[in-house]
Design a protein around this nucleic acid. Structure first.
Length: 487
RNA sequence: GGUUUCGUGGCCGAGUGGCUAGGCAGCGGUCUGCAAAACCGCGUACAGCGGUUCGAAUCCGCUCGAAACCUCCA
């Protein structure tokens, strides 16, 4: 079987994945800034990396998955001034900044649980690592790549560029980058226009502040990821991920900070997930064309015709490759909802299949095709196409149009457990067991009545029972072996 | 303006030179008292123009169109 290949942003090609210290794998993903409800685009990124994490674990790697919580130091503007997002939000809501952080961190975790993502191994916060950030800034200054102006410390991009390739990640030259920036504003104290803040001096009204060698202040946005990834994964680690929008600025600066600090490149494989769009344009907080995950689940938003279950949404996302943009529309979402239902129904059917002396299908070949799809840069759309092959085989067997040995049936069960549940992280909606037991009995009673009516050719009554059950949300299905039903 | 990516059948979405995914919707059929579900079959798509090649959705050029980044956002 072909080895696992990963598209590396650094080389812009798919590369064979070779961890530094197998079977250990270090993976860092830029987490959310918890100053408001988690954005659906964020969710896509974290679902993508959850898939990657799950697959690496499935392959037997021992993965340390670090995903941070940004709870300080993320500025509103690009000019390194103004308050950070938490303090601003806290003032608006008249609460403590850490209250904002707590509220939205909890909300974020709840949504991630709805999507059935696994918790990371470590979830460090920026405010919990102020010391590490200050130490790193000191090291960068000691190597001459940063300078202090009035209590604010800036990273010297031009100086860095004389020794390293600053635009490496986006394949851009310094001159091109310089052309793209705006003119320096009069009040700005930076030396170069590409310079960015590592530490920002607190203003009298700044709520979130810490002491440092440069006075009271707070860390810049980019330094937290460099400091925390280094602390938990080492100077150089295997995978760093995030959304594509972080590539040009945040990740470029992370590389610069690490190299300026300890010379070596921090990451071997940079992975970037693509954006979520609505009607062809990017869903963003500022464009106002987005909805929250909660609104998506309930359908309580003008853009949504109805609510969609978390698993249906997740399945919809996984039907697109993580490096492609994904456009949200009711039509597409409903198509996925039905496809997901079909996939899950076949799993229930699979449980009732009986083995035959021989098989008309090659399940082992199907199994290895699934691995091939995933080994090709986590190609979930192709994986799902193979899973629908399994669906067809299962349903055909149930219809006596194909046959499977018990061994093959067990192999199919393993296929579902491996890929549908373990790797894709999908699950069926669980019903309350006591309630569902009672429901079973009630439906069985009604079906018995209907069956009696049918045998007496009282089709009016039998159809009435069927139609009223459908209205109540239960669909029944007559088969040769008897009548089955589902919600 | 610069950098990058993309344009696939009604919709979503895989696919980097020949073997032409998959889902949803549609049509025809099998099954069925009728349904539903399931299964079988069908549509022969690759923005346009030109080029390379025995052969291109896939490589090259141009044109048109879209998006992302360059400025806070995954």
């Amino acid at each position: 079987m072909q080895p696992l290949v990963i598209y590396n942003t650094l080389s812009r090609t798919k590369e064979e994945f070779r961890p530094l210290n197998p079977p250990l794998v270090g993976m860092y993903v830029c987490g959310p800034t918890v100053y408001s409800d988690v954005h659906l685009g964020n969710c896509r990124t974290f679902i993508s990396f959850d898939l990657i994490y799950r697959y690496l674990v499935h392959l037997g790697f021992k993965v340390r998955y670090v995903r941070n919580i940004t709870d300080a130091g993320h500025l509103e503007g690009d000019r390194d001034e103004g308050d950070d997002k938490f303090a601003k939000k806290a003032k608006l809501e008249q609460i403590e900044p850490m209250e904002v952080v707590q509220r939205y961190t909890v909300g974020f975790h709840n949504i991630m649980r709805e999507f059935n993502t696994l918790p990371p191994s470590i979830e460090p916060t920026a405010t919990g690592h102020i010391c590490e950030q200050i130490e790193m800034i000191k090291e960068i200054m000691a190597r001459g790549f940063a300078y202090e102006m009035g209590g604010t410390v800036y990273f010297d991009v031009e100086k860095y560029s004389r020794e390293y390739n600053y635009g490496q990640l986006t394949n851009r030259k310094l001159e091109e980058l310089l052309e793209g920036t705006r003119d320096l504003h009069g009040q700005d104290e930076k030396r170069g226009r590409l310079d960015f803040a590592l530490w920002i001096a607190a203003k009298p009204e700044t709520l979130m502040r810490w002491p440092s060698p440069w006075g009271w202040g707070f860390p810049g946005w980019h330094i937290e990821c460099s400091a925390m990834s280094r602390k938990y994964l080492g100077d150089t680690f295997d995978i760093h991920g995030g959304g594509m929008d972080l590539q040009a600025t945040h990740h470029t600066n992370e590389i610069a900070q690490s190299r300026a600090c300890y010379h070596s490149a921090p990451v071997n494989y940079w992975m970037h997930t693509n954006m979520l769009t609505v009607n062809g344009t990017r869903m963003s907080k500022t464009a106002g064309n987005g909805f929250t995950p909660q609104e998506l689940f309930t359908g309580n938003h003008p853009l949504l015709e109805k609510g969609y279950a978390p698993m249906a949404v997740k399945f919809f996302m996984l039907q697109t490759h993580y490096r492609s943009t994904l456009d949200f529309s009711n039509e597409a979402l409903q198509a996925s909802e039905k496809g997901f239902e079909k996939l899950m129904n076949s799993y229930a059917t699979l449980q009732s299949l009986k083995g035959s002396p021989n098989s008309s299908e090659n399940i082992e070949a199907l199994h290895s095709k699934c691995y091939e799809a995933m080994n090709d840069d986590f190609n979930t759309p192709v994986l799902i196409a193979h899973l629908f092959d399994a669906v067809r085989i299962i349903n055909s067997t149930a219809d006596n149009k194909a046959s499977l040995t018990q061994n093959d049936i067990d192999l199919l069960k393993k296929l579902y457990n491996d890929f549908v549940f373990d790797v894709l992280g999908l699950k069926t909606e669980e019903a309350n067991s006591k309630l569902s037991h009672a429901l079973d009995n009630v439906v069985a009673l009604l079906l018995e009545m209907r069956s009696k009516a049918k045998s007496e050719k009282n089709f009016n009554l039998s159809d009435e029972i069927r139609d009223k059950l459908l209205t109540a949300g239960l669909q029944i299905k007559d088969t040769k072996e008897g009548t089955t039903w589902k919600i």
